[in-house]
């Protein structure tokens, strides 16, 4: 599903991704952890070309991500991304947020999309909020709308970029529950998070990143209980 081969990314002189390679199989849930500035969010953003890479190859579902516009658009339509700050469209209702891309990008009929969008919002527990604007929703609700919006494109892969970090603690669970359900339904997911409980419960694989490199990867149990690298130990010691 995802094949990343030796990518390098620079912001000016800053080497944010240093020779990162990664393979994710269909249906796999991969959790990426690491200190801030380790490049994990950047890696995620590179996977749908919100950030270009300077070297290396990225393949998503058999399509090479390069400067070719058609490829980029095609890949983005297949890859859902959810952001830390929700990034909902504030001038549109929850329903319209979810409907926009299927109607505009996929050019599907509104009536059909509307039905699916309502179903999608129901799935994330927001059937009563379809007509609410983002500003009328709590952070947790907004994030669930954002997840529904990404799912409405029927993506093959979902990227989650610290999606619970901006939420009040009591709202974190409702979002994680939606993500757990998604994982159980067999969605391929790459999740950047600090929620170690979530990682333990649903991750098939945990990747620890530091200073733009993948330092260590393995099952959640292996990483959390028997970390090999000193950096991983130090990091886990600080957050667990």
């Amino acid at each position: 599903m995802v094949k990343v081969k030796n990518i390098h990314k620079y912001f000016g002189h800053l080497h944010v991704l240093n020779d990162v390679s990664l393979d994710v199989a269909k249906g796999e849930v991969v959790v990426i952890i690491g200190p801030s500035g380790s490049g994990k969010s950047t890696l995620l953003r590179c996977l749908n070309y919100l950030e270009p890479v300077q070297k290396g190859e990225i393949w998503i579902d058999g399509i090479r991500l390069d400067h070719h516009k058609t490829n980029i658009r095609a890949v983005r339509a297949e890859v859902g991304i959810v952001f830390q700050a929700f990034n909902l469209f504030p001038h549109l209702t929850a329903l319209r947020n979810v409907m926009l891309a299927p109607v505009v990008v996929r050019r599907r009929p509104e009536a059909e999309v509307r039905k699916e969008a309502v179903a999608m919002l129901t799935k994330v527990g927001l059937q009563e909020k379809v007509d609410a604007y983002p500003s009328q929703l709590s952070g947790g609700q907004q994030q669930r709308v954002a997840i529904a919006r990404a799912l409405a494109m029927q993506p093959k892969l979902m990227l989650f970029d610290e999606v619970t970090s901006a939420l009040d603690p009591e709202l974190v669970r409702e979002v994680l529950d939606v993500m757990k359900q998604l994982a159980r339904d067999g969605m391929t997911m790459i999740v950047v998070t600090h929620e170690m409980g979530f990682a333990r419960e649903v991750a098939d694989r945990v990747i620890f990143m530091d200073e733009g490199r993948i330092v260590e990867e393995g099952t959640a149990e292996a990483i959390f209980e028997r970390p090999k690298s000193q950096r991983t130990k130090e990091f886990l010691g600080k957050i667990l």
């Binding site: 983005r76 339509a77 297949e78 859902g80 990034n87 469209f89 990008v105």
Partner: peptide, 28 residues
């Protein structure tokens, strides 16, 4: 920029993003 990220992340092109996301908000 977050609005651009969201729209591009959904596969929307420049003109689609302008028309459906940016201009309606800019108008306000």
């Amino acid at each position: 920029k977050d609005q651009w990220d969201a729209a591009r992340g959904l596969g929307m092109g420049y003109l689609q993003t302008m028309r459906h996301v940016v201009v309606p908000q800019a108008f306000r």
